[in-house]
Design a protein around this nucleic acid. Structure first.
Lengths: 370, 370
DNA sequence: TTGTAGGCGTTATCAG
DNA sequence: CTGATAACGCCTACAA
């Protein structure tokens, strides 16, 4: 062990961190007093409190969270496990999480599963070892069973899933209300005067895509329109598939006058293909996507889409997690939160003739439906 | 203190974490033996090692990093401070950092300064308290002096700046070679046959923009072309400023046939304005941007740009930081790393007539110049 | 090859 | 109001 020189003028370059013991020695009081003064304990007189605080500032005292956590058995660390930190969605959610967590005095450890269950398992072990106070997870695509999360539960570690969640009512989850998103989007297209609205659906084993499709059908039914499976194209939400999908739709005896795509990339592909086919967007074909990708405000026209409230999702997840953490002892009844999506009406779906009116309607709708 | 039942069948729902002491008791050996067996110490026989490892697995033992860090005075945590986690750049860098760090057995705590020095200061305190082993920083825009980082240095805490760095040769930095990026881009435009290349420059108090401009001038000089300040438009790299900038350039007696923009958004604005003015891109006006924003492959034509190697930057920063950490004791000579940018030639700058040849040239150049 | 004991910095408990 | 003391879980000199 390196010899530590206490109470000695520090070496030229590096100095050891100041501990409570150092402050205690300096003031000729006990560590207890220091500890209490710093944590604003009622049993310490204001005079002493001031003295301690002043000295702490002078010596630039930083509490050692590890020691505190070790002693208390509770750290001020939250763990995040996401598939990856790229694209638009996850970074924004992480942004929201970090903001909310730091506001509550927590630091955040971030892990990526890279869409790999094995990695996800290791992430959990890693967070366990780091003694986090709770964990926020968005499942990897390859996660089929969730036994590895029992390890957390058996340790009594609070857990909240977001976006890609375990379904059930005994888990804490925060998701976007995808059904509502699909519903709002489709209803908007119908309000534009479109009568044959097609749908680009995503993989139906993922609940987000199932729900968006459900919202689409709900809006059709509400408008008294039939559910026509020939108008639904199943894709993996890739750009090229949007182009191919549109070609397929145009070959129908009765082609669509609008498309609600469950993803922006697919919508983009369709819009580009429409141009190649000589169709005007939105006059001949109205298009709406999903996710509010950055490029949707760069295309000509801009693409109507649904915002996923990434940041709110992060904040809601943290709020829920902290509730569970703070309720330690009493048994907390798991809760499932669904966030309102926001429809963003843009040029790709706004029929010029109806524009002034429709814009207003759409705007008020997007707000009031929430 | 809650009573802990050692060695007792665990309560129905939650169980306490298993410690080395628990394992030691079970095997009737000392904690020392357990500790050594788990850390693969040479003085422990293979038989005992096996026994311990098996029991550890059975009880799902997770080492307590906090205790270990407290004892050793060294944690396995790295701290990151970034202005924010959004857009394309920072998330990708963070992605690279987390990947490299976790490969080396480190966890990563992430903090956002929100472009605010005061917040940045708090972030540092927070990381100090969390006992991180080192810190990676990209400066907030409002950070003018760097005194608050002395706190780290005086604690002997390794520090690496990336992207937005403190300039000097006594700090560790990782940046993109922006000059080279500007040079490659401009040279490419010249190779396309353009002879009047304009430049959208960014705020010159930021070194990245200064350097991109320098690369632009270097390429012009190399081609024997004059430096013409009337062809340089100073902007904040906003989309609208690109449009305005182009209008300004077109009003010149001798308008440009190409633009090298120090940012993609500005390039986009110019491209949209060019279309409005009836100019063909790239035939009448070749355009190149900077940053490889996601939308550059979505526009028509796609936008030629310079990739900033976000992920490599993160990895390089971690490598450097770990070097400093591992060199503890010997004095480490600070190092400044500059990453090679990658020119991505796309439709906005590829003159059709020259396309087949030029494409090949540009490609080989982008690789070999590096 | 294994064990003993002390301490990292903090806080809870109990005693003044 | 304040102080002494013992733990939290792990590591490591030193002893056996």
């Amino acid at each position: 062990m390196a010899p530590r020189k206490k109470n000695a003028p520090d070496a030229a370059t590096t100095s050891s961190p100041v501990s409570m013991a150092d402050l205690a020695r300096e003031l000729n009081v006990s560590m207890t007093t220091i500890s209490r003064a710093l944590s604003d304990h009622f049993s310490i007189g204001p005079a002493m409190k001031q003295k301690v605080l002043k000295l702490a500032k002078k010596y630039n005292y930083q509490p050692n969270h590890m020691a505190s956590a070790l002693r208390k058995g509770k750290s001020k660390l939250l763990g995040i496990v996401v598939p990856y930190i790229e694209g638009r969605f996850f970074p924004s959610v992480v942004h929201g999480i970090e903001t909310a967590a730091s506001k509550a005095g927590y630091n955040v450890i971030i892990c990526q599963s890279n869409e790999d269950v094995a990695q996800e398992r290791r992430n959990l072990d890693s967070l366990l070892s780091a003694q986090v106070a709770g964990v926020l997870v968005s499942l990897s695509r390859t996660t089929l069973d969730h036994k590895h999360f029992d390890k957390l539960r058996s340790r009594g570690l609070p857990l909240v899933y977001f976006d890609r969640v375990v379904e059930g009512d005994n888990v804490n989850t925060v998701v976007l209300d995808d059904r509502e998103g699909g519903y709002l989007s489709t209803r908007h297209l119908l309000a534009q005067g479109c009568r044959r609205v097609a749908h680009f659906a995503g993989p139906q084993h993922l609940n987000i895509y199932r729900n968006r499709r459900q919202g689409y059908f709900d809006a059709l039914r509400e408008a008294g329109l039939p559910e026509d499976e020939s108008m639904v194209i199943y894709t993996d939400m890739l750009q090229e598939q949007g182009a191919a999908g549109l070609r397929q739709l145009l070959a129908l005896p009765n082609p669509p006058d609008a498309i609600f795509s469950a993803g922006d990339y697919c919508a983009l592909g369709a819009m580009q293909e429409a141009r190649r086919q000589g169709l005007r967007v939105p006059e001949d074909l109205a298009i709406a996507g999903f996710s509010n990708e950055a490029f949707t405000v760069v295309t000509e026209p801009n693409i109507t889409t649904v915002d996923q409230r990434c940041e709110e999702m992060g904040q809601a997840a943290v709020r829920l997690l902290l509730e569970v953490i703070d309720s330690k002892g009493e048994s907390f009844t798991p809760r499932q939160v669904a966030l309102r999506p926001e429809l963003l009406v843009r040029g790709s779906s706004l029929r010029p003739a109806l524009a002034p009116v429709a814009k207003k309607m759409a705007a008020s709708r997007a707000k009031t439906v929430g």
